[in-house]
Design a protein around this nucleic acid. Sequence first.
DNA 1: CTGTTAGCGCGTTCAG
DNA 2: CTGAACGCGCTAACAG
Lengths: 342, 342
Amino acid sequence: MDTMSRRTLPTTKDVARLAGVSAATVSYVLNGRRQRSNTISAETRQRVLDAVTTLGYVPNQIGRSLRLQRTERVSLILPRIGVPVNDVLIRDIQRVADQHGYTVMISVVDTPERERHMLNQLKRRLADGAIIVHGTWAEEDFAELVQAGLPLVVQRNHVTAEGFDVVQTTEAETCYEAVSYLLCKGHRRIAFLGHFENLPSRLEHYDRFTSYLQALKDHNIAIDERLICAGATTRNDAYQSALDLLRLQEPPSAIFAASDIAAVSAIWAAHSIGLRIPEDLALIGAGNIPEGEITDPPITTVGPADLDFTAIADLLFSRLANPEQEGRVYQLQWQLILRASA
Amino acid sequence: MDTMSRRTLPTTKDVARLAGVSAATVSYVLNGRRQRSNTISAETRQRVLDAVTTLGYVPNQIGRSLRLQRTERVSLILPRIGVPVNDVLIRDIQRVADQHGYTVMISVVDTPERERHMLNQLKRRLADGAIIVHGTWAEEDFAELVQAGLPLVVQRNHVTAEGFDVVQTTEAETCYEAVSYLLCKGHRRIAFLGHFENLPSRLEHYDRFTSYLQALKDHNIAIDERLICAGATTRNDAYQSALDLLRLQEPPSAIFAASDIAAVSAIWAAHSIGLRIPEDLALIGAGNIPEGEITDPPITTVGPADLDFTAIADLLFSRLANPEQEGRVYQLQWQLILRASA
DNA sequence: CTGTTAGCGCGTTCAG
DNA sequence: CTGAACGCGCTAACAG
């Protein structure tokens, strides 16, 4: 309670002195020796534990990390926050990390500057391993991290698993299927509602968009640039963009939204000008977020059939246990989920 | 590129050897000496920098932290993810941290077990300071962290700023005003749509709820427990709960939702059974999230007038610079924001 | 069964 | 202007 104790936290040495043993013994007691025949008498053990509680000693993780060459933390790097699918990812990684006694540290990395900063932090051993989701990272960045010996899992479709693991989705085919579905229903003016910021490096890797283009092309529909909308970053931006689309002289009869959030916003936009869905406007989203089940109407969407990303976390911890293994590719199967909006 | 280099990262010593200087000189060059008259010749400086790039040397943050007794990280602890207001908080804290050269690590702490784990991590010097938002933390936990010398900012209404800073809102009065507003409009059956999990320790500290109760009481309206709904944790749960409310034999004519997310879900629920808002059902939310402006109708809500939480981050960094200062209280002004839903 | 010693990587004091 | 030496807190190897 005195102000002095706030200045200097107790160390193993303090505990050792109070218990009348050496610092090593304290460590043995607290970390339970595993190898060798190093055991501690019950009496000494108790003296140490008493000293620990008396002093309120807590081991310093930094000293421990330096000695063990291991932080017991994993880093989860997200390109943006407020995307429901990331909530699930966080939940699943958290759960697996708990089981391994690891702490998860989440970082939102949404600008090139922050990317550079985080790249540096990771090379400085901020964590023992990292899961990087999408973002504008260059492939060289991943190579640098591998070079630095950091166990790494990258969720991105167009990247080669060289020294790290890659999580991919089959969204290219499924999005193609979704747009084809709209075409088969007779729609000829189909809008694309997405955002072109924070893309995985190149536009041609933006599967949801290229699939849209390809499907139209394969059905001999000319691309109308006025129907391609890039402003759907936030819910409110998506709302405005959808409104702009629907107010065109020749408005679309269907919208393929690159995210379910954008699709929900499109519903609000349609409602606000008296359009009915799907009668006046067909709508397909992407991502299969739970929210899509409670909208009016529920949203037809493409996305992972069940929202469980445990496998991604498992990849990282398996690599943590065996860092030298070859890069693996894990496929997340997407599917078209028909509901009422299209 | 050889496998050896993945085993052992270069250290200051390696850089020193290659540059033909001592490790100290490397540190001088990289950290730019401030005190004393220690300067390095341009020539030596260049040799060191060359060696750094040749080896791809990156200072090890763990060694640095141990030496400096400072991690150059701050911890942001959230009780749950997927709440839009936290997106704003993250953005603002991130920005301020960038300016100070600090890294933000976000943690989702949503169970008592994770709370205990994180309490320990913080005492182990996971970060130099922390911002803790709501959650079920006990006041003793904060005292422990203060005792451990951790600069701390807590966002919670009912807590005394003893050795740390507190961010409070005026939501108690504003929520009272909101419910009173409904009562003045003639509503007598007003439902409460909230969630009783993850509460700040005690139910009587759940301002949004107590204000609801108090307003009814002051207007001599008997509490009808069937109108008090505790299941609105996620969007989908809130939807179900709202549906249950609206299907009661004597359904409410108004709903006060403890979050805007719950309010949006209530709109969907109302739509799905053909109720119009505000004609058939009045609705007030809480939190003032941007999404409330694009719903149909836009949501009348209570919340901070402008979404800027820079001040919270400033509190932490000011305390980081001056750890011994008295605990301060910062008030976040809430207000009733009238839109079309009530 | 327990104490001594060494060193993880870094930044800094002090003597040259 | 530079280098040798020290210590941050912890744990593994080795003595005793």
